[in-house]
């Protein structure tokens, strides 16, 4: 939707990509950078928690299956510890969740994406719709 870099504001939006699969990180980092985002990558849950709490990001892409602390737990702790978090948190997963589990996650997150449903470029287009 908003691939053209010139249409983005002067200060690039910051995206934190929490994902333990190296290949996916590489692809997201490339596509998001190309779309004009400043992208940071972390690969485990504890680290993600610290980074998110620093509140320096506009968007967080949060995987669920993560080493050290799973994504849903990260999300829960952040909502408890920092209710006024600025960043929008998008859950990105390839898990097949039951409707109840999914609803529980969606209630706490700002968005939910099945990674396999979007190519990296489509993911960047999706983030452009968030209006952060």
């Amino acid at each position: 939707m908003n691939e053209d870099q010139t249409s983005l504001p002067a200060t690039p939006k910051r995206v934190l990509c929490v994902e333990d699969e190296h290949f996916i990180n590489e692809l997201y980092a490339r596509a998001l950078t190309k779309a004009g985002y400043q992208t940071t990558v972390v690969t485990d849950g504890e680290q993600a928690l610290q980074e998110i709490l620093s509140d320096e990001y506009d968007i967080v892409l949060l995987d669920i299956m993560l080493p050290s602390l799973i994504g849903t737990e990260v999300l829960k702790r952040i909502r408890a510890d920092k209710p006024d978090l600025k960043a929008k948190i998008i859950i990105t997963t390839n898990l097949e969740l039951s409707e109840e589990n999914r609803a529980a996650i969606e209630a706490q997150a700002d968005g939910y994406v099945v990674k396999a449903d979007l190519t990296p470029r489509q993911m960047a287009e999706f983030l452009a719709q968030l209006n952060v």
């Binding site: 996916i24 692809l27 190519t119």
Partner: peptide
């Protein structure tokens, strides 16, 4: 099938590249 999703995500990503 959902185990297939992760490599599929990558495959689609690299094809797009």
């Amino acid at each position: 099938v959902h185990e297939l999703r992760t490599p599929l995500t990558m495959l689609r990503g690299y094809v797009e590249v």
